[in-house]
């Protein structure tokens, strides 16, 4: 599937810039874009030989089943089973990390940027490979200390996007802003400090979350988000449970 195009270069240009200085003159250009379809060519055997040992290592681990999912989870707005499942998981695992690290505070809110959730979770067996598809980035867990006003600004950004993946907090969206915010079942207090568990990408201001860079304090324990998800799913299986999630009205429209 190759198309051809051609043009002729203007000679004035050649005379002005190159012709008298060089041995060659460009007279023509042809080309096209080759669509690399299934049938056009077979993979290069030397390349395959190089990656085959890597592939074997990978397949062994990628096909490992972590847990069983009761029902397909897809991401959606303002909330969805998948966005709620991930945020709740982050909050729960975040508390464990803080405890293990000897910290004297708890995480109040958890947050994933919607765009960072890259696929859905199918019904049935969830493999390591599926979690790599879900979270391909090497993002790390970060805790951010923000005051109530800053939390409000953060949730306004979430509201302006029509809702994202949040845990530990409930609010309604009215005219693109977050209203009636409750954190841990209590009304938000403007001067109080709260801890948000999230990833380093947004913690550094990604996805319009400049407010996160104004944090009062932070803690970065050096754990990959993907590893946290994998160990959470493993612990569900070890308890003999399967994965479920619900929408619960944590983000609603007024």
């Amino acid at each position: 599937m190759q198309r051809s195009f051609t043009y002729t270069l203007l000679i004035t240009w050649l005379i002005a810039f190159g012709a008298c200085k060089t041995h060659y003159i460009q007279t023509d250009a042809n080309g096209g874009n080759v669509v690399v379809s299934d049938s056009i060519i077979q993979p290069d055997s030397q390349l395959v030989q190089i990656y085959l040992p890597y592939k074997k290592l990978l397949e062994k681990d990628m096909s490992r089943v972590l847990a069983v999912n009761k029902k397909e989870m897809s991401k959606g707005k303002p909330e969805s089973e998948l966005t709620n499942f991930l945020a709740d998981l982050l909050l729960e695992e975040g508390q464990k990390v803080l405890k293990q690290s000897g910290k004297d505070f708890m995480a109040d809110i958890s947050y994933f940027n919607y765009g960072g959730i890259r696929t859905y979770l199918p019904e049935g067996e969830i493999t390591v490979g599926k979690i790599y598809e879900l979270m391909p980035f090497e993002n790390e867990l970060v805790f951010l200390k923000l005051n109530g006003n800053q939390i409000r600004e953060f949730l306004n950004t979430v509201a302006s996007k029509g809702g994202e993946s949040v845990g530990g907090v409930r609010f309604s969206i009215s005219e693109g802003k977050a209203k009636n915010i409750t954190i841990g079942k209590k009304q938000i207090e403007n001067e109080k400090y709260y801890w948000v568990a999230t990833n380093n990408y947004v913690a550094e201001g990604g996805d319009d979350l400049d407010v996160f860079t104004q944090k009062d304090d932070y803690f970065k324990p050096g754990k990959l988000i993907r590893d946290i998800i994998i160990s959470h799913l493993e612990s569900i299986s070890e308890k003999g449970k399967i994965i479920t999630a619900q929408t619960d009205g944590r983000i609603s429209y007024e």
């Binding site: 012709a19 041995h23 060659y24 250009a29 874009n33």
Partner: peptide, 17 residues
């Protein structure tokens, strides 16, 4: 997709321009 562009050059002899 693989892009492919051929540039054709001609040796510049005498008064080629």
């Amino acid at each position: 997709v693989m892009g492919q562009i051929d540039f054709i050059f001609e040796r510049n002899k005498k008064k080629k321009e």
